[in-house]
Design a protein around this nucleic acid. Sequence first.
DNA 1: GGCTTATGCGCAG
DNA 2: TGCGCCTAAGCCA
Length: 264
Amino acid sequence: MPEGHTIHRLARRHNSLLRGEPLRASSPQGRFVAGAALIDGRQLVRAQGYGKHLLYEIEGALTLHVHLGLYGTFNELPQPALPPVGQVRLRWEGSQVCCDLRGPTVCELLERDSVRRLVRRLGPDPLRRGADPERAWAALQSRRVPIAAALLDQTVLAGVGNVYRAELLFLHGIEPTLPARELGRTDFDALWSSAVTLLRAGVRSGRIVTTDPADRERRGSARPDDAHYVYRRTGLPCRRCATPIQRAEMAGRNLYWCPRCQAA
DNA sequence: GGCTTATGCGCAG
DNA sequence: TGCGCCTAAGCCA
């Protein structure tokens, strides 16, 4: 479930599991054999999340860059690990744990310059200390695309995905088709601040929950489908006004919104 | 067990 | 704009 919160959670996890000892690296699937050979036997200096990208600084100047895309996952196995089952792109092992990476969009080694270029291309990540919302604000000013499209653009804002975008727009009553450049400064500030809060909560819990705890309590349930206001709730009554939630495709992704709470 | 769907994104055309 | 990646969860039988 890879939006920014998943990535930062993995970075933390891998820092605590894999740092401090030489790691064995291999590519059972065969698509990362040369790369694995280059990092085999080296230590992990630090893992960090940047938007939806995972960057693993390896002892000796190389950085392992992983992007999970839609399908990518890491699995942890205790040592001694059983032989890999299925398509494991990278098996990375310490003495205690083994981490198997499957189905990533990107798994590659980068030199320092390429890492810099990658990071420069990304907008501010609300999960990173010192992230500068002014950069996101400036980027929005120059865009005519709908705000709902701009929020998924990783050069504007890094780490927000399809679930967070739908929920953020709902929480602030913003019409998804509003041109990005017409978003008011007050709404932007509120949006940024919610993004920080919700993504951080996601890192802590490992899932995306945007509904107010008081709301959930009032409905007397902690059903898993209570976690969102609009995402994947097509046709169901809005939790605030009971109007049926709408769905439409925008730039190839499903967009969900409440036509009443998010009217112009 | 099979089928559908998906939280992303680069690329061909 | 549509495809490919090729995993995993949720649903149904």
